[in-house]
Write a protein that binds this DNA or RNA. Sequence first.
DNA 1: CTGTTAGCGCCTTCAA
DNA 2: TTGAAGGCGCTAACAG
Lengths: 341, 341
Amino acid sequence: MQRVTIKDIARMAGVSVTTVSRALNNAPEINGETRERIMELCRKEGYRTNLLARSLSSSRTHVIGVVLPDISGPIHAALALHIETYAAQLGYQVMLCNGQPGDGRIEGLFDFLIGQRVDGILLSSASNSAMDLLEQYQSAVPTVLLGAFARASSSRRINSVSIDNYVGGRMAAQYLYGLGHRKVVYLGVREGSRTHHLRHRGFREMAAELGMEVESIGNRESHSTTAAGYRMAQELFLKPFSQTAVFAASDLVALGAMQAADELGIAIPEQLSLLGFDDIDYAALPKIRLTTFSQRPDALARSGVRLLIELIESGDGTEFTQRLLTPALVERSTCRDISNR
Amino acid sequence: MQRVTIKDIARMAGVSVTTVSRALNNAPEINGETRERIMELCRKEGYRTNLLARSLSSSRTHVIGVVLPDISGPIHAALALHIETYAAQLGYQVMLCNGQPGDGRIEGLFDFLIGQRVDGILLSSASNSAMDLLEQYQSAVPTVLLGAFARASSSRRINSVSIDNYVGGRMAAQYLYGLGHRKVVYLGVREGSRTHHLRHRGFREMAAELGMEVESIGNRESHSTTAAGYRMAQELFLKPFSQTAVFAASDLVALGAMQAADELGIAIPEQLSLLGFDDIDYAALPKIRLTTFSQRPDALARSGVRLLIELIESGDGTEFTQRLLTPALVERSTCRDISNR
DNA sequence: CTGTTAGCGCCTTCAA
DNA sequence: TTGAAGGCGCTAACAG
């Protein structure tokens, strides 16, 4: 496990370390022949650049840190994949970490990444405290927040890219209205998350504008899980209700609602339309086929990576940009047009 | 973005860099007071150790590289999460990368990780070429293969931890036999993958021992996807067949088969039992409830990380160990006992 | 085109 | 208990 260094190669080739360095970096000012000779030697000797040393002296790592709440969650996993792919195309490696604001480990994670001298950090989080965290750290390293942006906070001095949840909520209301629904429910209001707050507000406001009646059912849990959706849906279904459609705060919540409906013999979409949000993988499954809104993880990833790298390469920490993506409706089979029944 | 170094702190505290270094590393030979004073200064000045520099001089990074075929796939995502969690407990950070043997980028990835001087590499792969790759690289860095081990190759000089696919195949046969099935099909034979090869062989051998008749249907595609499962199942269902149970090469294949069965009005498990392998998240969904075998990603991750770190800390590259985990049956609702009908 | 000289930020003997 | 000096492997002026 003894490693051959640039110095060894230099000695063997009878040149200086500088020359070897130049050969390795395709510097223009070098003789083609000696270059070839050196490269050949490197290959033969199994030389591998010590990137730590290179980064130390060049103070650039070409690595970006990516912090996600839960790599194993379907949306985040997709995000991770796209981020990595796209970053690689632009010449950056990704250092992927698990963590979320408030879990007590996240500061340690940021310190680690900064200690590793990553060129920038991408944080994906829907929690409110993510912004505070970034405001605190972005003086130390370029930083972009993914997915937690909110119109309301446009005053925040941070860089961010996000699905426009407010608009998403509005689109949902509009879609259901267009299908002829006039009394609907919003399932899973959760105030701890800005994302969900906005989604809810957008939905209610558009519904109000259209004259559609909406009942909101709150989620007492701290996460929008299938189990929570199941319980909330039961709460709704177990007494008589007159609504014809349900907009679930997330696909997982929708899944729970589906299960509850199934057990109580409520047919979807015949008796009740169900609309989700996220477009997780499950949603596309044959037996599910949930109509929902895509968070467009690929677009989010691309946009976030691009912004971060612009930041890194401009070296300008005085400008803050916020980008908003419009969610995309994915029509499958859980919403029915009841306008002319 | 100008960083404060150990030298700055030393100057400010009126001591030498050595002293600061000692304070930072809780060296025993240092005055408690000066230690406190220095630490306080570091905090106030926002000092963060440059890990690159530390690693360069100590030649230890406390980072392990993890290479997975597809972070967004459910099994790999779970694996990634567990690996990271467990490594963190043992004081190691994880550098997560996407790549698989044969995709043309993997050598670059390994070179990158070695260049970053990771202390070790964990590779998860089911492909045959993974072993060749590791044999080639393990002289440069400690290495553990996850999930692709095969009994047949116990002669290989590599470190590995894996679900015992051969035994898994045997267990599957035994389970179906116990339920009274006598004519079964193995759906999705794929020779490119050692994993699948073993699973198939185990299944056939145990079936033969029990006197159970098995028809194998091959998968012409290079991956075990839902789409492939769908096509293969159609191939089976479209002509008359007498088998009472199907063992699918993977849960995804099983999912495809479910869809095909659904469309053709074949009831599962009433008319046909279906057994999967992997226990991906989907499998547990209310409308799916697939009976399957768990790959036990948590156990796999723990075991792999532990082995790798032992390797790293022993510094012994002459010993190779192989660990085998037994899959665990997860009984849900897609297999029926037909023994006394 | 090539070599010399200084670092990058930290750790680690060896003296004091 | 502290400091000075050298080195980890590489890059980056600046001369030649």
